[in-house]
């Protein structure tokens, strides 16, 4: 049973087609990243799922049922910006959230502690820094320990320590079996935590599925020698050679059509009279793969 299943969701803002026929399923227990450049429709999609916007076409189910307020009460959501009553303290704001979610107020101290806000829990929201506001929004999403979380750019406004803490938190939640739907343009973040992705560009779904199936990221070898010109000529003669490019650091990145043993390559080069000064197996970064995908 998918946690969320989208069928042909479309949405227009005036002449702008924000989403066009988007369909995909979020399996239970996955950390599902929704990726895309700014303006690709990530927040619009999550706003439709949370009933802030209505889709022009298409439908979706939550927990295999027609979506309703009752299901939203069991999903922890952080959408776009932290929205709280400015004049209320963090604690009182969470009391309002607990009331709406029909969850016990006894859980408030736990989530405030998780977000590192215990010491400032009785200060008014308007006195909070941007990072603290974001932390409160994360605390609010965690209230009642929901099995499903929707996090839209959860690291927004956080300092490096905060970003790392959120990443660890997401990993811990995933390990605890929670399903996490996370929109982000920070690919590093997604690469480190997501099991599945959906990639959007200009409102269209490019691909979706498990990370490694969606984004093929072939291994490649990075090599260097005293004479890179000669090395290039030698490498191009290798039977498994596909493609070669130079890095700004003066190294060569080589893609082979099959996995090549580094020791074998080193041996092969030496037989051709080239001694390698650098040899490293590397993997294409998600960022490179993503840019290739979204630019096509």
């Amino acid at each position: 049973m998918p946690i969320l299943s989208l069928q042909n969701i479309s949405k227009k803002y005036g002449p702008v087609q924000a989403l066009s026929q988007v369909s995909f399923d979020v399996p239970p227990g996955s950390v599902f990243g929704i990726l895309g450049p700014n303006g690709s429709g990530k927040t619009t999609l999550l706003s439709i799922v949370t009933d802030v916007l209505s889709a022009d076409e298409g439908s979706f189910t939550l927990f295999d049922q027609h979506p309703s307020a009752k299901q939203r009460r069991n999903i922890g959501t952080l959408l776009e910006t932290p929205n709280f009553y400015h004049y209320l303290s963090a604690y009182r704001n969470l009391q309002v959230v607990a009331g709406i979610k029909q969850k016990s107020e006894k859980d408030i101290p736990r989530v405030l502690e998780l977000a590192g806000l215990t010491a400032r829990q009785h200060s008014a929201f308007k006195t909070y820094s941007l990072g603290m506001k974001q932390r409160l929004a994360i605390a609010s999403a965690l209230l009642g320990d929901p099995d499903v979380l929707i996090l839209d750019e959860p690291s927004n406004g956080l300092d490096p320590v905060g970003i790392s803490e959120v990443r660890i938190l997401v990993k811990q939640l995933a390990q605890a079996g929670k399903t996490i739907i996370m929109a982000s343009h920070l690919l590093d973040e997604v690469e480190k935590v997501c099991t599945h992705v959906a990639i959007l560009r200009k409102g269209k779904l490019l691909l979706s599925g498990p990370v490694n199936a969606v984004i093929t990221r072939d291994d490649f070898l990075e090599v260097g020698s005293a004479d890179n010109k000669a090395l290039k000529a030698v490498i191009e003669k290798h039977p498994a050679f596909v493609q070669l490019s130079a890095t700004p650091e003066g190294l060569l990145q080589v893609i082979f059509k099959e996995a090549v043993d580094p020791a074998g390559l080193n041996n092969w080069c030496s037989q051709q009279g080239i001694w390698l000064s650098h040899l490293q197996v590397r993997r294409k970064s998600l960022e490179t793969a993503f840019l290739e995908l979204t630019n096509n």
């Binding site: 009933d51 802030v52 309703s68 307020a69 939203r72 959408l79 910006t81 009553y85 400015h86 709406i100």
Partner: peptide
């Protein structure tokens, strides 16, 4: 102003509520 009308709905109020 605080966009809490959205948040109330996101958190689990029906729009009618």
């Amino acid at each position: 102003t605080f966009k809490t009308h959205r948040q109330n709905v996101i958190d689990g109020w029906d729009r009618k509520e």
